[in-house]
């Protein structure tokens, strides 16, 4: 079956269904109506921008332009991670999360594009950009959970951290239980998603491929690959994010710099 392209008019009709959630949120005075409006407008504008931009990227397919686009995505993800994890912006934190996210994405990209998909041109936009985007989006979510859990938990259980230090632990040993919990909490949503995928919901990427005319069997192979890429990328990125940032957030006596937390 041929792909049914949507006209802008058809897409506009699609927005009509928002009346239902809008009415429900309005009736119960959730205060989310404005937020919903902003979110829908932002989503639409951002995706229109990305759509046109990807058309350009795919058409010219210049590796340097593709790399620059990945860098921009990582920088935006970096700011978003710091803001959403309740941490104060600082140069050191920004660099730590940038390195963690960039490495997380690049290592996974290189592995899958080189050894699995075996692309002749590693920076081919059609594959590199979507896979990077999928991994990066999930890295962002996991980093927010991981960084928030790690640093706020140390703040909340400072006596326990100090207890370990005062009983002979190196800083790494004293931080180990906090690191473990942060990794668990950040990995759990992706593990749950992997365990239920296909049973509870069809994933977006696979649905997109099928709607675009791909065979479901090709779609599931890509979906399996992308789930593994996402899981590996997120665990690696959270590990690197905490490992690198902690070098700057504790002093030489092992004292935690609480001013990095954006507390109300």
């Amino acid at each position: 079956m041929d792909i049914i392209d949507l006209t802008w008019g058809q897409l506009a009709i699609g927005f009509g269904i928002l009346i239902i959630p809008g009415l429900i949120l309005w009736k119960y005075k959730t205060g989310l109506l404005q937020k919903m409006g902003i979110a829908v407008v932002r989503m639409t504008l951002q995706l229109i921008f990305v759509g046109y931009y990807l058309e350009y990227l795919f058409e010219y397919d210049n590796p340097w332009v593709n790399l620059a686009w990945i860098m921009i995505m990582v920088i935006v993800a970096d700011f978003a991670t710091i803001n959403r994890s309740g941490l104060r912006r600082s140069k050191k934190l920004f660099i730590s999360i940038f390195i963690a996210t960039f490495l997380g994405v690049v290592i996974i990209d290189l592995f899958f594009l080189t050894f699995v998909i075996r692309l002749p041109n590693i920076m081919a936009a059609q594959y590199t950009i979507p896979i990077t985007g999928m991994v990066l989006g999930n890295c962002l979510r996991s980093n927010v959970i991981g960084m928030n859990e790690f640093y706020y938990s140390i703040d909340q259980h400072q006596e326990r951290y100090r207890f370990y230090l005062a009983n002979g632990a190196t800083q790494e040993e004293a931080l180990f239980p906090f690191f473990r919990t942060a990794l668990r909490k950040s990995a759990n949503p992706n593990l749950a998603a992997m365990a239920t995928i296909g049973l509870v919901a069809l994933p977006g990427m696979m649905t997109g491929q099928i709607l675009s005319g791909s065979s479901p069997l090709i779609a599931i192979k890509y979906q399996i690959m992308i789930m593994i890429a996402i899981f590996s990328g997120t665990v690696l990125s959270v590990y690197l994010g905490i490992s690198i940032s902690r070098k700057f957030t504790f002093d030489s006596r092992g004292r935690f710099d609480h001013s990095m937390l954006k507390k109300d």
Partner: peptide, 19 residues
């Protein structure tokens, strides 16, 4: 020096929390 010193110490806080 503190790192070496802490290897010789045990600290028992009043309200112990081992997690």
């Amino acid at each position: 020096k503190l790192k070496a010193f802490r290897k010789n110490t045990t600290w028992l806080p009043q309200d112990l929390n081992l997690g």
